[in-house]
Design a protein around this nucleic acid. Structure first.
Lengths: 203, 203, 203, 203
DNA sequence: CATGAATGAGAGTTCATTCAT
DNA sequence: GATGAATGAACTCTCATTCAT
């Protein structure tokens, strides 16, 4: 039995090695430019090997986005652990930006990229996405219970908030911040977040 | 003379036929997956023909985004013509959403798609992009002069506002609104915009 | 009648304009890289126009080599006009080098290039080539009559002489003189020619 | 172990099959007209296969010329092994002609063909070319020490000698000996060489 | 006479994928 | 389990050439 376990463990290790390498390449080069060959080369295995762990390129990127969603959910969840609702809301926003900036590849895959969305829906990645979204919506409700956002609809509010952070992050990831050339991108992002938080509190 | 004119007209028709077909494909498939061959097939001409009208794939993409930026600027500009600053701000937001929803392909091309953003910079498309951005930033300043956004930085504010609308629109265009399944997408968008406007006024 | 003549004259002018442009491009870029399009662009006519004057690319380059041979023959002939045979021999050698260096494109076409040789044979270019060769062989005979090259075969000698100049020139034209990097190419050429002449005289 | 060896052997066989086919085509058609596709067709493999053995067309050409230079150097070197300098000089000339006549393709590739001469320079092919050239120049010096070529410059002499053999050989390879139609080409070549040797001795 | 428009053919190259070993 | 070898299909782009006007 120990043998089977070891084998399974090794298999998982290989799988995650492929995944993390793919993630890295994907982040650096983008989806279309990342080829199975590139990944294979990077892990110093043959391209054929990858097909032993993933059916095809799609499945690989699918698995990747799942991992992205897992990481995403975990980080958001941590940021939501303690404190007053409004404080948690601010922490959540900061963490969202942080995740996106530190994992632009994952973020792109999960929230911007075209291709893979069709496929999942009803799989684990999707579930985690929904749960992440749930964190925000619940938090909005808690804020309302705490006296904020008088008589506003929680879902609409959640969408509005999410839209803002997503927009800021998307501009950065897809390289459209050049219009604000003279300003430092990070300052721009966190400055805008501060303003947004201020607005939220007053709402 | 009539002949020359007809020829020129035909040439323009061909050009715009290529452009609109390319637009459609770029939108549906993305930049990398859209090939000159695909476009040629779609218009039922040979690939070589396309090169009679556009130097290469980049130039095609480029021409397309230029057209998008022109349309975009024109529409924003119209929305900014008369009224009190804050009212214009609201109209601008509405128009932005409208443009994106009615021209998802152009919007994608201009603000989302990963592509030769490197290339332009200093061409007409870029200029129009800058001018559109200028409309927003100037308007923010007018609002400030009118007593809003006390002691806030115009550029940061402009970025914050733009981020919000861009985020909302991006979610829609790249099909990430499924998380709010039970609500109608258009209501979601305009509802969120209303909330955002309300926030802005209070800021 | 005057009209017909003018037309014919104009036709010839156009023809030679195409030819000289082709020659130039061909010299600068080589045969394979010189395209009908390039030529057309350079003379600011449409590619189709060239086909009004030359049946196809082959005919064009054929005509070109003919012109080359004409020029070549003329120059050699001039160098052979007066003086003692051995002096003329030296002048001929110098002129050969000069022609090749000043018209590397023509030289290449006529004596190095692979393609077009098949075609002519029994046309004017060929005739002129034979006549040029005739100049050399006759001159060798004159030298013999003058007491040089005791009991040597004129044809063999002529081939030997031609081989030497052709070899030197070919090295230069096809860029194989790098092995003698430290020396100036022109000095190398004329220095070698001097030695060769010295040898010839002693033979 | 046997397996690895067999595989390696097979790989080398494939490589040299590609090389020899390419050589043939390059020779028959020239560099520009020889396409990867042609080569692939000739060996009845897919074009992509060739890229498993050679990075690109240049590298193929390159490998080929390297092989040629190796063979060339080896043969010249052998001819230079023993005997008095002047005798070796004659043997060297004969061997040069022999190499070129027996390996017209390689010779063409190495010394005539227009092609990525730019690329190598500082690689093995180039080194071997330089070493071959070194054989000749050293030998010229030895002849001088032995009392020949009074007060002549070794480099100039070496260039002159090389020019002659190269010229003769080039005429043959590029099919320009037709002007001496009535004589047998081989007799012409060796006859001219004899004369040239005679001249050299007298110099 | 001149040409704009069009194209079939072909170039070099890369890719995801398969399969025998 | 891993891979070396192979390939079909696709890519962008250029070319010589034709033909209606």
């Amino acid at each position: 039995m120990g043998i089977a376990e070891r084998k399974e463990r090794e298999r998982q290790e290989m799988r995650s090695m492929i995944l993390s390498t793919a993630a890295q390449l994907f982040i650096e080069e983008g989806f279309e430019k990342t080829s199975i060959r590139n990944i294979a080369e990077a892990i110093e295995y043959s391209p054929a090997t990858i097909y032993l762990y993933f059916k095809d390129k799609n499945e690989l990127f699918h698995a990747l986005s799942e991992e992205g969603f897992r990481k995403f959910f975990t980080e958001l969840n941590e940021a939501n652990q303690s404190g007053k609702p409004m404080d948690r809301m601010k922490r959540l926003g900061k963490q969202y930006l942080k995740f996106a900036i530190e994992n632009p590849g994952y973020y792109d895959l999960m929230f911007i990229m075209k291709a893979p969305m069709e496929s999942h829906h009803n799989d684990e990645g999707w579930d985690l996405g929904m749960k992440s979204h749930g964190i925000l919506t619940s938090l909005v409700k808690e804020c309302i219970d705490d006296g904020y956002f008088k008589s506003k609809d929680a879902k609409l509010l959640s969408f509005m908030i999410w839209s803002f952070v997503h927009g800021a992050v998307s501009f950065k990831i897809r390289d459209r911040m050049k219009m604000y050339e003279e300003l430092d991108q990070d300052e721009l992002m966190s400055g805008a977040l501060d303003y947004f938080n201020e607005m939220l509190e007053k709402l």
